[in-house]
């Protein structure tokens, strides 16, 4: 088996006295499509935010590409990472947010070109060409000169995906990217994710409440509850034959709420 691209080793995370992640460990293989599911408050978003360096860890360690994420080697020991180290590590990782986080004062095209131009020094013409390719891929090329406020939620989210892809990260994090959308707009965003999963070898971590999509999309599913992994396995096993009581209860509730699995 190839070396994992992400290793999470005994990570703990608290907000105040409230321990959100408890001694959490798992690995992700290069190119793997991983779905993270579980009840609200189980810590799924927190894991993605820690990987994007938006949230610090309180204990344990994370390795991305065999390099420590939140630590760096210094005089033979691992010390807390400084801004320069985090900057280097962030280049490997991209994230798409529930609320899009597009830049409202920039056009769609500028939203996508800004990061390559600023962080990689990509010349403008080249950044534009790359951005137009990505916008075409997400079906947004014809809106390149619009501002985000003129777009629907589904369109905004597709632009946000193109924007994150423009930096060509090895790892992409998706945090409930369809849950702020009207139901009729969900599918257009999921189609883009399907395409990415099929056509790229990017490692993808996806937090979602769309069980049907998690089933199709992922190579492996992690079921979280209370900051721990309760059960993990291939989607067929988790969704059709879950072993743990808590997984069964969770999935029963989802089905009762009207979702197909």
């Amino acid at each position: 088996m190839t070396d994992p691209i992400i290793r999470i080793e005994g990570v703990s995370k608290s907000f105040g006295n409230f321990e959100v992640l408890k001694d959490l460990s798992f690995t992700v293989a290069p190119g793997e499509k991983l779905a993270l599911i579980g009840p609200s408050g189980s810590g799924k978003t927190t894991i993605l935010r820690i990987l994007m360096t938006l949230e610090e860890i309180n204990g344990g360690g994370i390795f991305v590409d065999d390099e420590p994420l939140w630590h760096m080697p210094k005089n033979g020991a691992l010390v807390k990472a400084d801004e320069a180290h985090l900057h280097k590590m962030r280049a490997k990782i991209g994230m798409v947010f529930q609320l899009f986080n597009l830049f409202p004062h920039k056009t769609v095209l500028e939203n996508v070109t800004l990061a390559p131009m600023l962080t990689k020094g990509t010349p403008k013409a080249e950044a534009n060409a790359l951005a137009m390719d990505l916008l075409a891929m997400v079906g947004m090329a014809d809106k390149a000169s619009q501002k985000p406020a003129e777009l629907s939620g589904g369109q905004k989210q597709r632009v946000a995906i193109a924007r994150a892809l423009a930096l060509r990260p090895k790892i992409m994090l998706f945090d409930e990217v369809t849950s702020a959308l009207d139901p009729e707009l969900v599918e257009e965003v999921l189609n883009v994710l399907r395409k990415l999963a099929d056509e790229t070898d990017m490692t993808m971590l996806l937090v979602t409440h769309e069980m049907n999509f998690a089933h199709d999309f992922s190579d492996r599913v992690l079921f979280f509850d209370g900051g721990r992994i309760v059960e993990s396995g291939p989607p067929d096993q988790i969704f059709t034959n879950p072993q743990e009581e808590r997984t069964q209860t969770f999935l029963r509730k989802i089905v009762a709420a009207g979702q197909r699995i």
Binding site: M52, T53, L54, H87, R90, A91, I93, G94, M95, F97, N101, L102, F103, L114, A115, L118, T119, R163, A164, L167
Partner: peptide
């Protein structure tokens, strides 16, 4: 957070 995710 959008900026940080884009490594600005």
């Amino acid at each position: 957070e959008g900026c940080k995710a884009l490594n600005f």
